[in-house]
Write a protein that binds this DNA or RNA. Sequence first.
DNA 1: TTGACACATGTCGATTCCGGCATATATTGG
DNA 2: CCAATATATGCCGGAATCGACATGTGTCAA
Lengths: 123, 123
Amino acid sequence: MSIPAYIGAVARSSTTSDVFNAIGDAHRREVLDALISGEKAVGAIVDDLSMSQPQVSKHLRVLREVGLVRCRKEGRRRLYRLEPAHLEPLHEWLANYERALNDRLDRVDGYLKELQRHQGELQ
Amino acid sequence: MSIPAYIGAVARSSTTSDVFNAIGDAHRREVLDALISGEKAVGAIVDDLSMSQPQVSKHLRVLREVGLVRCRKEGRRRLYRLEPAHLEPLHEWLANYERALNDRLDRVDGYLKELQRHQGELQ
DNA sequence: TTGACACATGTCGATTCCGGCATATATTGG
DNA sequence: CCAATATATGCCGGAATCGACATGTGTCAA
């Protein structure tokens, strides 16, 4: 007897739909890049990149759900355009690291200044 | 006859090891955040965050492989520290969209003006 | 109205990814 | 040498992800 009583894998933290994850996929970044020049229909993106139409549509869906892209219907086409303001989370996150880096540089700077001071005392 | 000749799924673009993918995982970002205050041993990160030690070690490995983190041996511990310079690809990529954002600044400006208008209405 | 076009969505198989557990490796202390 | 500590790594199962196909949905044109 004594069934192994395996606990096994646990549900992951989900959050499958944030900006960080969205830009984690290279093809998704290509789609975004294709939209930098301006509003485009799905077919135009398919032509520009070398991806299938369903593939592009699905990536657009993900990008839309995280707000990086907006859609507008025009006749039987759907025109997508960037919404760069929704890159803010990424931007803020990056800013943290720049701040951390600068703070540490400041500390190093203070440390060097103190070193100089001690050197002056020694002389 | 005529065997179905199923083509099926194709190897994905791999690239499982770039900066974009590395920061795509929320836990990995937590590990990075834990290092903002400075160099830390693995155990300290495990204590700070609520993650198992192997989990932290594995995430650190990914982060190290993309250069976001560096390791230094000290006795039987390994001290990890940020390497913010390797966030450059992200930074450059974002810069592209800032340009797109600037091109659309007029719209943001209009939005802010509308916000001000609503604030005025509320007061 | 019917067919063609543009796009979205559902399904499936394969692959990747992630976390839990167990274990290996290296360093220190007794 | 041996035990304890600190960390890395291997293995496994489950779940998420991705792309290829097939199909559904809405819109225009004749």
